[in-house]
Design a protein around this nucleic acid. Structure first.
Lengths: 323, 323
DNA sequence: AAATTATATGTAACCACTTACATAAATATT
DNA sequence: AATATTTATGTAAGTGGTTACATATAATTT
């Protein structure tokens, strides 16, 4: 009757399966301590063992080493102190820290349990060895892979990529004004600093961009605004791509590309011959994108005196060469 | 600073490690659902998924399939009912059972989440594949090995074997009387039935065995009595090994052997030429042990009429041939 | 030196289960 | 048919952690 869905689900229930196995093993260790009639709880082991290796340790130090939260260590320490296994005293060199150490009784308990711990380790090794697979290193490798990229980011990436079809690029609306400023502020502060010209433009897009014949676009993922880019029309008629920003957690999904395409499309619609931009060589990914879309570095500078400190590179795209 | 003791401890902290990894993965899945802004908790998944596969399921059926306790399923079901994902009704064919099934909303939610579950499964598969190890089958193999012999029994076996040096065999004391009766009753009932002669002997070892020149021995593991065996002296002077019993959880560690050696030693000390016993061919392990110690099946029967129904085999050991 | 920020600890409340117990219905035994 | 046992469910309380918040001390910045 019992189907064991957890087994059947394979990768989808991998976490549940690990949990189940872990609980099964921990329950057995608890049983062993109980049978031995030692006043010792299985969950005290990591702290007791740590304190046999290093005689004095603080709460957070233990928490860090054992992958527990500090309240957990604090509570365990209270139990162990009550059981007479450890005691504690303030660190004289740092009055915040409370140093835990084994009592004579704690050391005795550790000595008594040492052979049992050996038996547990040996038995576990046997069970793992019988499988013929290198499970311990496998688990370690899984952890390392997750260190590189967490499951959350992996799944989220898949979801976003799948739903990129729902990404729309819309024209300026007063409700989006705050995002234009916030998104650009974010990356400006991340890489450079916000200059006075930035402040003027970002705070008054209507007056400074739209009223002068430019446009501001916004990338929307569902209802969420995730990126922005502006087409600025200068007094000499020059069209500039500027203020392109994508929220960090949405970078890497081609949203910048979509914004760039939209700005270029708008410039083409206006029968512009060229689209200009000023950028920094520090922004390697952006420069790469611009080049892919036909922008070339030039020594010309059509922006006159109104440049930015960070913008040491000017690029131009010959729109009439494009389809 | 952080050493990660859990990693360093290898097999000894294997369970903790599994738990940590499981929690890491489950936490990420929770984050994903939260980000999706679906009214859905990660821990509801197994029930929701089960009910997409089989439309009506009872509480215990789910608990069995999901390796959860029935109160857990009951509580989860209550939450899910509140969230409008499932509803329930009594099974008309068995009024005890409450059958759960998805509501329209529950089905909708399952449909919405299906692609996300696929993403989770695919991402997990990728993480596992990147390790180059066959982890999923490895975990399955570990579970199967534990099915064969639990960690508890493995470790306990090691502890007992290591501490067999502390096994002592003592002579009869009134305080041990109850064990003589209890241990023998246990195996007699396990394999046969308690006969009137058993009852007489087991309830009055002093009068029936010791006062007639026999002896009763007890195996002690620390302070715990774990086995017993008697040397009975019959009216015709015949010495019989009888009423040997080892508590089930201490079988397989050589305690029977130690009791047998002690009884044979006592017989030799008394300069007996032969030691007799009556047994059943059903007790294969015991007969094997007797043979190993020099007992041979014989057609003689020195016990006269006072036999037992179960004892169809008589064995004898020529003590004078032994060292 | 004063103010701010970071770190270490403690405590309360919560969480997702579990165990232990109670009850009712079904099934097996006498 | 009456009684005992098993099974299904529900509920209370316990467990072993967590998160969230409060406080004290140390380190850094102004």
């Amino acid at each position: 009757m019992s189907v064991d869905l957890i087994n059947e689900l394979g990768e989808l229930a991998f976490a549940s399966r690990l949990k189940r196995l872990s609980e099964r093993l921990l329950k057995d260790v608890t049983r062993i301590y109980k049978e031995l009639e030692v006043d010792f709880e299985a969950r005290w082991f990591p702290i007791l063992y740590s304190l046999t290796l290093k005689t004095k340790m603080s709460i957070t130090e233990l928490a860090g080493n054992l992958s527990l939260t500090h309240p957990a260590v604090n509570q365990l320490a209270a139990e162990m102190e009550k059981a007479g296994l450890i005691n504690s005293a303030k660190d004289r060199r740092d009055e915040r820290r409370r140093l835990l150490q084994l009592t004579a009784n704690g050391k005795k308990t550790a000595k008594i349990l040492k052979p049992v711990w050996d038996d547990i380790a040996i038995s576990t090794r046997e069970v793992l060895k019988e499988t013929g697979k290198d499970i311990l290193n496998g688990i370690e490798a899984v952890e390392q892979n997750l260190d590189k990229k967490e499951m959350y980011d992996r799944v989220r990436g898949k979801i976003i990529r799948r739903e990129m079809a729902n990404l729309t690029v819309e024209r300026y609306r007063p409700a989006y004004k705050k995002y234009f400023r916030a998104f650009n502020y974010r990356w400006l502060r991340e890489y450079f600093k916000v200059e006075p010209s930035d402040e003027r433009l970002l705070s008054n897009p209507k007056r400074e961009i739209l009223d002068k014949g430019g446009e501001v676009f916004f990338a929307l993922f569902g209802k969420q605004v995730v990126g922005t880019a502006a087409l600025i029309k200068h007094e000499n008629g020059v069209l500039e791509l500027a203020k392109m920003a994508v929220e960090p957690e949405f970078r890497g999904f081609g949203i910048g590309k979509r914004l760039l395409e939209r700005v270029m499309g708008e410039a083409k619609r206006r029968k512009a011959e060229r689209l200009w931009l000023a950028t920094s060589p520090k922004l390697v990914a952006a420069v790469g994108l611009y080049e892919k879309y036909g922008f070339r570095t030039t020594s010309e500078n059509p922006f006159g005196g109104e440049g930015y400190e960070r913008c040491t590179v000017v690029m131009v795209c010959e729109l009439k060469d494009q389809p």
